[in-house]
Structures are given as C-alpha cells and as structure tokens.
C-alpha cells in the first residue's frame, strides 16, 4: 500500500504494512472459507449471501489501518496522501465507468467488482509516487 518517509512517516508506514498484511490474510482466509462453504454445503440463498459478505468485516480492518496511517502522518505527508487518494478515486471511478460502457456496448468480458478495491490500492500507491515527484 502507500509508502511513506523518514521520521514521522516511517513507523506509520511500517505499522500500515503490518496491519494491512494481517487484515489481508484474514480477508483472504475468509473469502476462501466462504467460497468453499458455499460450494460444499449449497446453503440456502440467505445464508450464502451472509457468507459471501462476511469477508467484508476483515476488509474493514484494512480501512481502519489506512485511517490510522493517515492520522499518524504530518501535515505535508497527509496532503500528499489526500491528493493521491483523490487521484486514485478519480482514476478508478472513470476507469470503471469506461469499462462498464465497454462491457455494455462493445462486448468486453464481464469483470467482477471484487477487483475494484485492489485496483484502487494499486492506483493509490502509484499516485502517491506521482504526487511525491512534484515535491522532489
């Protein structure tokens, strides 16, 4: 996820990595477990829906880690991250809109919305590097 710098940012970045890794592992385990349970036991639809959204709980831990990271940064770094988040949000919003139109109108293959969040994280990281270049 987003990297940081020395002094105020370095411990925050290390903690973010640790928290994101932990929450990510729990999330993956929950996704795999829910998938296996739904396929193996063919539960009623309400239970399948419940199992399918259950991994969102550990995913929210990732959001909490991100918020903790932002609060630990100094004002300059927070400004950089805020700009990077804004760029990432815009790229993902317009990217998904454009791909939705490609799916509907040009016959492109359907993609799962599950990829939106990982794509957002990747674009956020890239945008952080891009924004930092301006202050070099």
């Amino acid at each position: 996820m987003s990297n940081c710098s020395e002094s105020a940012g370095k411990p925050a970045a290390a903690r973010l990595f640790r928290d994101m890794f932990g929450a990510g592992m729990i999330y993956l385990t929950a996704v795999l477990g829910a998938g296996l349970a739904i396929k193996g036991f063919a539960p009623p639809q309400w239970l399948a829906a419940l199992l399918a959204v259950a991994p969102i709980a550990p995913a929210l831990l990732m959001l909490a880690a991100q918020l903790r990271y932002m609060r630990a940064l100094d004002e300059f770094q927070r400004g950089v991250q805020s700009e990077a988040v804004l760029i990432a949000a815009a790229v993902i919003a317009f990217g998904t809109l454009a791909y939705g139109q490609l799916e509907d109108m040009a016959g492109f293959p359907d993609l799962s919305m599950m990829w939106v969040f990982p794509a957002f994280c990747v674009v956020w990281s890239a945008a952080t590097l891009f924004v930092r270049l301006r202050y070099k």
Partner: peptide, 29 residues
C-alpha cells in the same frame, strides 16, 4: 534536514518541501 525534522516532529521530506518553497506550512507548524 533530518535534525530539523526531528525537532519539528515531521518527516525530512516535509522540511525539504518547505525549504524549497514547494509547500507552505500551516500556521501552527
């Protein structure tokens, strides 16, 4: 820059950005 960053409790990048005029600090900073 790292010494000053430590005294101010900010990152070295923040000090560099302020020094080079690319970032104006808040009033408290």
């Amino acid at each position: 820059q790292a010494d000053l960053a430590d005294k101010l409790d900010v990152s070295r990048q923040s000090v560099n950005a302020i020094e080079t005029g690319k970032y104006d600090p808040s009033l408290p900073l």
